[in-house]
Design a protein around this nucleic acid. Structure first.
Lengths: 135, 135
DNA sequence: ATGTATGCAAAACATTTGCACCTGG
DNA sequence: CCAGGTGCAAATGTTTTGCATACAT
């Protein structure tokens, strides 16, 4: 039950918050822009403002419930943060997103950072191209 | 001589274009935002508009002279494209950018893409954290 | 000369914020 | 009841664009 998630991070359980969580949780696409989420809300007949969607997403991000990504292009996309880190293959034609993890890449990144005296806080690896169906 | 670069890609040799190229070429920071480039221009006494800086950078990007990066944050940064692909370590405190290449990571990316039936056109790997001097 | 480039101001975007009103606990 | 949440409209910051003028060849 999502309500617990919200309470756990100190946010009141409100209708817009529940709705946004549910959309992120149940949508076919796991990676959605604020505007896409807003449209989903309007389609379900919920009269939630776009500003609220942004506010809620930002709060969720701060609370660690959601991850924000800046893929190529001008807007951010959001996905539910279910703990497991992963990187992304992004189709430049249909916008499909495929997640992957490669332990060797992860390890090499740590090595590179250590080699440069760098203390990693985060990283993002995005591979752009054409997915199988768009070639 | 930079003039040749411009002619080669079919752009007239104009003062703003030359200046922007020179700044990208000679600046201590290789990665600059449009606004930083604009400020450099104003400081050198050149009265170039910010819009022109954006136009010129976009043309350069299209021509393959410049690469645009969207690091975390809200604005793009540009660097001279000197052919050799590389990834970036970005200091979240001082904004320093360190370039690196790791052949193993490059190879694993190709493997992952192949495995998913994905045809790569581009990729970006950014590691965020604190550089040696900011820890 | 003449097609391109430029500067300026205004537009376009995604995102954020101020404020009066509403709502959850 | 009352702190916190929301909607709306207006502000923001970056990037783009329309248009009259200026420049490169």
């Amino acid at each position: 039950m999502d309500k617990q998630e919200l309470k756990k991070v100190g946010l009141k359980v409100t209708l817009p918050r529940m709705k946004v969580l549910n959309i992120l949780d149940s949508a076919l696409k796991r990676h959605l822009s604020a505007e896409e989420i807003h449209n989903e809300l309007l389609n379900s007949g919920e009269d939630v403002g776009l500003a609220t969607v942004y506010r809620v997403l930002t709060q969720f991000e701060t609370a660690g419930l959601v991850k924000r990504h800046n893929f190529a292009g001008d807007h951010s996309v959001f996905e539910l943060d279910q703990g497991a880190h992963h990187d992304h293959l992004v189709c430049i034609k249909c916008n499909r997103v495929i997640e992957f993890v490669d332990d060797i890449i992860e390890q090499r990144q740590r090595d590179v950072a250590a080699d440069k005296g760098f203390q990693i806080t985060d990283h993002s690896l995005n591979i752009y191209g054409l997915c199988g169906e768009c070639q």
